[in-house]
Design a protein around this nucleic acid. Structure first.
Lengths: 339, 339
DNA sequence: TTGTAGGCGTTATCAT
DNA sequence: ATGATAACGCCTACAA
């Protein structure tokens, strides 16, 4: 019973392996009902399931999707992963989750391994790094993928042209900033992500655009970087406060940052939203359960994940350099007050 | 350049495919330095990487680990997945993340697919269901796996004997309850998980044991089920409150529940820990950033994930029905007060 | 309707 | 030190 192959089934059923193959793979090849039953019975009895590696040898690609994330324990990526894995399994795919830990080198390694597995496509969930080296590596991979038909989809900006399923990060950065401006805030701080990550840069750009458009002077001391984590937000907020510059509004590049920052504010005796209004981007599940519940821009992570699988499966035809852009909107909760 | 195989490399290098194979697979077979270089150069030039499916055909198993989780977007599973994927890739494995969405049927489906991919092992991250049908199915799979050497490891109770890498859930349920008792609480409520999931049952048992041991009468109206989610905790807490029974302490089966419950308490004007002390199990990252920061029992999810990969890789020899049990401890923060 | 045989890309076993 | 060849398990023309 150890290694049961198609041949064992054929023997037990008293037919040829081609017949078994045809029955098992549900081809529309005509098979007498009697034979089919014999085969099915034998397969059942032996607990036969085809070896995918062997099937694979004939095909061009595996039914596998590679999902590249920076940190799968981050709810941001977790929700994307959920969308990807669920949709993938609906369509008969399996998903490799590749945790890069924010290391460009690991990411490149993963690309090679995924390629060896002949995955059908790769989803880049995190934003790319703005370094020449990283971009060059990525471009090279892409070139290879294009030649062989392996599909690639990005959910966040990579600094190069490729198929995107995403939201407009500049725009969402603007939205949250404008939201505060509209409510009378003009001293607005921004806690960003790492300064070499495109996602962070774009959101920050959106913030800056709005300030300029509204005639508010940019103040470098009001912008601080973090690493998109709770702790990062906490630390960054403390740093921001240490600058001693007054502000009434705080835009955060994601919800993690905002939750960490609110924690820091609380520790410093500052009340949200009475003293400081906080707004961010993400709408992760726990943003609803923070204290106060967080006002944040909806980011359709689950949908993004699902859609990107459709693109790879060829269900959603996305031209080579086209993009699918989802819309965002502000989820109003209780962390912002009108001045 | 489309599909480059070992044969292409052999041709370009002007050697036989066996030679290429020996060079590429780094066998300790003697190869002249000159030939080796020729082969490596050709491989480089063609961007050759071996097709794993083909290699697979020869081997018994793939270097793939299947990770079965209920909900990858839940930080509990996210952290486990991080431990698994990181350790896996250190050891040259890739991980399929299988999101079962708490459906036993999907779980069984996944087992079949993973088997077809000839994965090296499967990690059961969530607690099993206490239904005869589910257990029977699982037992059957296990039988098959045992026959062919596919390893299986559970991180949470499944109701049957198999290798575990886990913590003692009964004990941790007791620990948090005792912690409240020690601080003078005797009216203690418990928000559990789904009542057919072993993890939830065991933690609840621990709670009941402690109450009995301390001569506190069990009150059914103080125990409520949830689904281990934020919303579940929120709803369950509201339900609990609706029973109208006074309590000063609240044990939650996990941090999600606690965070949701604290939200409900806040809405009802109840202060934590002044009016109600809350304690739970998990120590997920955001438990530190809740308001107030949550006192909770440490649950080494990342370590559990890592260790289970070691077991599958054969690095940590775990006898067939033995277990590796991690220790827990209470992380004291600010959600509990002494009466 | 069913069976036979060749090939998918590798590795391992023989030869040379 | 290198090369030819037979598996590995499956699919698919092509035959019967």
């Amino acid at each position: 019973m150890e290694r049961v192959s198609i041949e064992d089934v054929a023997k037990l059923a008293g037919v040829s392996i081609s017949t078994v193959s045809r029955v098992i793979s549900k081809s529309d090849y005509p098979i007498s009902e009697k034979t089919r039953r014999k085969v099915l019975k034998a397969a059942e009895e032996l607990h036969y399931l085809p070896n995918i590696a062997a099937q694979q040898l004939k095909k061009e690609f595996n039914n596998i999707i590679g999902l590249m994330v920076r940190d799968i324990s981050d709810p941001y990526f977790g929700e994307i992963a959920k969308g990807v894995t669920e949709r993938a399994s609906e369509l008969g795919y399996l998903s490799f989750v590749c945790n890069t830990g924010r290391s460009p080198e690991r990411e490149v390694e993963y690309h090679e391994i995924l390629w060896q597995y002949r995955v059908k496509g790769i989803i880049l969930a995190g934003g790319g790094f703005d370094t020449e080296e990283y971009k060059a590596e990525l471009m090279e991979q892409l070139e290879r993928y294009k030649n062989c038909g392996l599909k690639i989809v990005a959910l966040a900006p990579q600094g190069i042209e490729l198929p995107y399923v995403t939201i407009d990060n500049i725009n969402v950065g603007s939205m949250i900033t404008q939201y505060l401006v509209d409510r009378g805030h003009c001293r607005i701080a921004f806690i960003s992500g790492p300064d070499n990550v495109f996602t962070a840069k774009e959101r920050l750009n959106g913030y800056q655009d709005v300030l300029i458009k509204n005639g508010i002077t940019l103040n470098e001391a009001l912008v601080v970087n973090s690493d998109f984590s709770w702790k990062g937000g906490y630390d960054a907020c403390l740093e921001l406060l240490s600058h001693g510059i007054q502000f009434t509004g705080l835009c955060c590049a994601n919800d993690n940052i905002a939750i960490g920052a609110m924690h820091a504010l609380r520790e410093k005796g500052l009340k949200v939203p009475e003293d400081i209004s906080v707004i961010s981007i993400g709408d992760i599940t726990q943003s609803k359960y923070s204290d106060p519940p967080l006002t944040t821009a909806f980011f359709p992570r689950y949908e993004l994940g699902k859609k990107s699988v459709d693109v790879i499966a060829g269900l959603s035809d996305l031209a080579e350099h086209a993009s699918i852009v989802f819309r965002s909107k502000i989820i109003e909760r209780e962390s912002v007050r009108e001045l």
